[in-house]
Design a protein around this nucleic acid. Structure first.
Ligand code: SF4
Ligand code: SF4
Lengths: 144, 144
DNA sequence: ATAAATAAGATATTTAATGTCCTATATACA
DNA sequence: TGTATATAGGACATTAAATATCTTATTTAT
């Protein structure tokens, strides 16, 4: 796996929205500034998040983004995988056909185990936890 | 982190050498063929492995590569990190200065934990285990 | 209607991975 | 000692992906 900038930005965006609460609408500009995300890039990321059913997008004046679910219901894993696809550490775990050895390969098994462990770790934490305590909110968000 | 082709090839090369045993010399061509690695690419990878002290390279006729340590002494993590550098899942874990929030960030802590866990998992397995049992040897290696 | 705000897609720009090629160097052996 | 063999080392080409920006279209509050 590789956490891309888009992935990192998506997390920041979701944590910011989670901090506001479910259904609270926030403008793209505000999110971009406070979470330090290039505004145009955020637009693309928001489209992905909306397509995945995580946020609602409202157009027009007073438009903006809002969370569709409760922050507790969204895991970090979910946000990450919306942006970068299902997590794998080695290609052969996701597409075993890419290596004819995969069935017998002990290295393959290690990558599978490591992957499962990683997804468990990321799946365990939700956006509520990540946004609720002071220490969970990136410092560039504090002045609100 | 992202396991590059170079990383995957390095693992195959080391597993193949481990299968032969410490100090046993094998030609570049043999490794390239049996482990399905582009020969020219293997040359570059071997240079990295040699620089890291994992293998010895002998030039000239009857030249080739050989393991310098016992397979039990080399972990999968070691091989991977020689090729792709120290493992991180998010940039901010390796270079906290890239994000001013890193000190206070709860997401950051999750990435740190996940990283430690991953490195532990890869550090636990060594090349002896990976090469010893039949099932550990990729099928393209069996005819030896 | 108008202006504000995002949508959607096209298009750079940058960066990294991957693979190849060429010349140099080391070494076994005739 | 010379020659053929095999790798070293660095330069270069190709490909792919991430990142960012720009333009035009659409939606909607007023
Ligand atoms: S050799 Fe094993 S780890 Fe490597 S690509 Fe094949 S199955 Fe995966
Ligand atoms: S917001 Fe947190 S997780 Fe994201 S880059 Fe900054 S410190 Fe790392």
């Amino acid at each position: 796996m590789r956490l891309t900038r888009a992935g990192e930005y998506a997390i920041r965006c979701m944590v910011y929205l989670a901090h506001k609460g479910k259904g609270i609408q926030v403008s793209k500009q505000e999110i971009a500034e406070r979470a330090d995300i290039p505004a145009h890039f955020l637009a693309k990321i928001a489209q992905d998040l909306a397509r995945a059913g995580l946020i609602a997008i409202k157009q027009g004046p007073k438009g903006g983004y809002s969370m569709l679910k409760n922050p507790e219901e969204i895991s970090l894993l979910e946000v990450v995988e919306v942006m970068i696809g299902e997590i794998f550490l080695n290609d052969c775990v996701g597409r075993p056909r890419t290596c004819k050895a995969s069935k017998q390969c002990s290295v393959h098994k290690v990558w599978e185990e490591a992957r499962a462990q990683l997804r468990r770790t990321l799946g365990k934490v939700n956006l509520a936890e990540l946004s609720e305590s002071d220490s969970c909110i990136p410092v560039f968000l504090v002045h609100n």
